[in-house]
Design a binder for these strands. Structure first.
Lengths: 129, 129
DNA sequence: ACAAACCTACGAATATTTTCGTAAATGCAA
DNA sequence: TTGCATTTACGAAAATATTCGTAGGTTTGT
């Protein structure tokens, strides 16, 4: 699936990824904390997302229950890939540097990243033997 | 300046960042390599970008010469920040991992990233003394 | 000077996203 | 059952992005 969720759609996906299956009301209440929005606006958005295949829904209950139909990881991956291509001319490491420069990771995150790098490095050496 | 260039605008900005000041024709010829597009479409886009303040232009020459009015670094930074907030729930390191996972950096890039990380780490230790 | 080529400005059509009002259906409580 | 609250479906307005045609001006070559 070739995905390009809009900003509004992403807001909804984030809620569903975090909270799991939700009614429109559930989602709407979370959205309302951060911004003005009419209930039917949220409803319509989720209906459209359903049409697009971004969400599945269970209509058995009195209120329909929506679930994200795309994985958070895959979506993140595709958006990152798009950004590398469109904004960083294909250079993933440039993106990495920008991300690190802007938002310093804490010690724990640093460790995680370093381990990840070492694994990549080891794999690279293997290939060159 | 609060920036949110669209995909089309980003294509044009990328060209201007790489080639420096350009006429509409210059930009259009590069765009044409990768996609179908009418000349007046490119013209209109660049005019709108000029209105928005994304581009400056010199109308002295027979053909106007456009220049990006926003820095590549700053724009990249803002887009990365937006992605961290909207897609990775504020976690820069998650974005980093995704980026590294998708596009393995070569040895040189790896070195660069590791040095960067070490600098961050040292700075962090200083703070805790 | 004349025509061909090129450039800008501008309006408008098209597409997409976001928002909301209204009507119909459903569930619930008195 | 009757009325109120909630939900869905749907159409359409509003906002934004993209595309292109046409008119009018400038430059260039002959």
């Amino acid at each position: 699936m070739n995905l390009k969720p809009t900003d509004s759609e992403l807001e909804i996906l984030n809620i569903l990824w975090e909270k799991g299956p939700c009614t429109v009301r559930d989602v709407h209440e979370v959205l309302e904390k951060n911004k003005e929005a009419g209930y039917t606006t949220t409803l319509k958005l989720m209906q459209i997302m359903h049409e697009k295949g971004l969400l599945t829904r269970d209509a058995k209950a009195k209120s329909h229950i929506y679930t994200s139909n795309i994985s958070q990881e895959k979506t993140q991956g595709q958006l990152v890939k798009r950004m590398i291509d469109n904004v960083f001319n294909g250079s993933a490491s440039q993106l990495v540097m920008q991300a690190l420069g802007h938002h310093k990771p804490n010690a724990e995150e640093l460790d995680e990243i370093k381990k990840y790098l070492e694994r990549i490095e080891q794999a690279g050496k293997q290939e060159n033997q």
